[in-house]
Amino acid sequence: MSLDRTQLISIALNYWQSFKDYSQDPSPEDQRRFEVIKQKLQGHDRWLAFQKELKGELTEFDIGDYTGPGPCFCCVAYPRSSSRPQPDLRWVVVGCVSFLAPVYIVYGVQFDYSNSERIFKKLAFWPLPPEIQAAADTIARRIEATFAVTALPHELAELRVPLYVQFTEPPETTLFHALFLDSPENLP
């Protein structure tokens, strides 16, 4: 089932506030979001099984679970280190399935490595760099087959929404933040 722009914004408005709330009490939006997250996390075993199958297909990557910081299942594919030296700049692939809407997204994050320290360099929703496109396609294909969700179009992912999502505030907040993660570059 593919949702249009208006439907996706309506979903986001149901789970996030459009004003800054300084109270300590959960808002009705928070309560709805917490309930959905609680319900969806009951399917975490299915997500872990998905990642195990993904490891069999992406043998040149280490697959890690990053579910928890946002209203989505999230996995990260790191290129496996080999005996040859790694470049200073390295891409990882991230796949997320939203808890709030029947959509997913796959994106890339580039890191710079200085000694043993990893430093965020660049975020890419589209187009993805050629060195991670095949892995991103595999993750997308497996997500669609396993969870019966559709890809969130990149133009909608980057659509600005007037919502307060964790530490992201208007005018910076996008539909991506509301449906997936508020800090897509902040990975383990």
Rank of each mutant, 00 (worst) to 15 (best):
Q39W: 13
T173S: 04
Y104R: 14
D25S: 10
R84P: 00
Q51F: 02
E60S: 13
L181P: 00
K40C: 09
E35I: 03
V76Q: 08
G68S: 12
Q166Y: 09
G64S: 12
V106M: 07
I143P: 05
A151V: 15
Y113S: 07
A49S: 15
L58P: 04
D21V: 08
W91E: 01
P127T: 15
V161E: 06
C75Y: 01
K122I: 13
Y113A: 02
Y113I: 11
A140P: 04
R142P: 02
F180K: 06
E57G: 03
P171E: 10
Q86G: 09
Y78T: 11
A49F: 00
S116A: 11
S116N: 09
I11Y: 13
F34Q: 14
A140Y: 01
D45Y: 03
R46E: 12
A140Q: 05
G64P: 00
F111H: 08
Q51S: 08
T138W: 01
M1H: 07
G56T: 00
W47L: 01
L128D: 10
D65R: 04
F180I: 12
Y78F: 13
L152C: 10
L8K: 06
S23W: 03
Q42Y: 00
C96N: 06
Q17E: 12
L100S: 02
I37H: 05
F180E: 13
K40W: 11
E155P: 09
A49Y: 00
S81C: 00
M1R: 04
F61V: 04
E131P: 15
S10M: 07
A77P: 13
D62A: 11
E60Y: 10
L8H: 05
K55P: 02
P184F: 09
E57Y: 04
F147W: 14
C96R: 06
P127E: 13
Y15F: 13
G64H: 10
S81L: 02
F120I: 11
D182C: 15
L179D: 05
D182H: 15
E144P: 02
L41N: 15
Y15D: 02
Q166T: 05
D137Q: 13
L159K: 00
Y104Q: 13
E158S: 10
K121Y: 13
E169C: 12
W16P: 03
G64K: 08
L89W: 09
H44N: 03
C74M: 15
H177Q: 06
L187N: 06
N186R: 11
E53V: 05
A148L: 10
V106C: 11
I139L: 06
W91K: 04
R5N: 07
I143M: 08
P26W: 03
Y107G: 01
F147R: 15
L187T: 05
E29H: 12
S18D: 14
P79N: 02
F167R: 15
F61L: 05
H177E: 04
L58E: 06
P79R: 05
T150M: 04
G43A: 08
R118H: 07
R118V: 12
Y15A: 05
P171I: 12
P130K: 15
L89Y: 13
P184H: 08
E57D: 02
D112W: 07
Y104E: 08
T168Y: 01
A49H: 10
M1F: 07
S2Q: 07
E117N: 06
E185P: 00
A148Q: 14
L48M: 11
V149R: 09
A157W: 02
E57M: 12
Q24M: 14
Y22K: 14
V161Q: 03
